[in-house]
Design a protein around this nucleic acid. Structure first.
Lengths: 162, 162
DNA sequence: TATTGTTATACTCTATAACTATA
DNA sequence: TATAGTTATAGAGTATAACAATA
């Protein structure tokens, strides 16, 4: 297929190959969704790098924090809190159990379900991970001052809690 | 492995099964990264739903907008602008070409490379897609007023442009 | 020898259907 | 029959190595 007749006029406006190698976006520049995706990727990559020292993924850190706040919760609850499907909880919890950070305990009247709890090891590591995550946050938003950071957090919560 | 000795104290504080089924996060509540991930997922899902009417993905929309701003750019440039690897550009561009929205043209002195351009069809559709994306933005951030939306955009740009 | 685009491949993430064991 | 957890599987998204054509 060579140069179809509906090819847009483009023979002019070719960017100088010697100038900035990163094309500008325009059109996308006014979209909150676009800016948020790029900012989120930056924060996520930063956190992934820091957590990798402990061989953990962000979802595993989130799971530990949610378990701490809701000891004894069921896997279905954890899935809902993490906004993932129940089958995805299985390998995640298996990993946490194999590292002795959390445990499944059959303790409910309903013998089908487990209560999920942190181990002492998990509680101790989670303390450290919270500091790491807070530092990652500061690092990835270093362009903001404290007041801007608080305002950003407030606005983001307002968006997702709606 | 049954109830290891380092199991954290958890026999108390079990959430009432009759109350809110969504466990709270705490610990995560002060993290910009966590709030941004949740807000970003909300915006992304909204946009995915709206673009699906046109059988397009967000990355394909972004590609169209970038091509419009940089007619004649090479695939390596597009990959860099989209923050993806060159091999991922191939199926993306194949899709846009099969839909007659964009074209690869061998027109450079370097016969290895292509210049990428929008077709007239692509230009027309892109106009519509921009409105859709803007509406998606407004919809997913309906909890914010105009001033908050501008402030959020400003802060996000400051973060990712750093 | 280096580079553009491409193919092949693999690894992760995510989602769905089906299975088990309890209820 | 319905539910909690699990298994199996398939589809995206993403990354790397290797190849062909060209420089």
């Amino acid at each position: 297929m060579a140069k179809p007749s509906n090819l847009a006029d483009a023979s002019q406006a070719l960017p100088d190959p010697n100038e900035a190698r990163v094309p500008m976006d325009s059109a996308l520049d006014d979209l909150i969704g676009y800016a948020m995706r790029r900012a989120q990727l930056k924060l996520f990559q930063n956190l992934i790098g820091r957590l990798s020292d402990h061989d953990l993924r962000p979802a595993q850190f989130s799971a530990l924090a949610i378990i701490e706040q809701n000891p004894g919760l069921m896997q279905a609850d954890l899935a809902r809190a993490l906004a993932i499907e129940p089958p995805q909880v299985v390998p995640l919890l298996n990993k946490l159990e194999s590292r002795a950070l959390a445990v499944r305990v059959r303790c409910k009247p309903d013998k089908r379900s487990y209560g999920i709890f942190l181990s002492k090891t998990g509680e101790t590591l989670l303390k450290e991970l919270k500091d790491i995550a807070a530092q990652s946050d500061l690092d990835a938003t270093a362009a903001l001052d404290g007041q801007e950071r608080e305002e950003l957090l407030r606005l983001l919560k307002k968006v997702y809690q709606d």
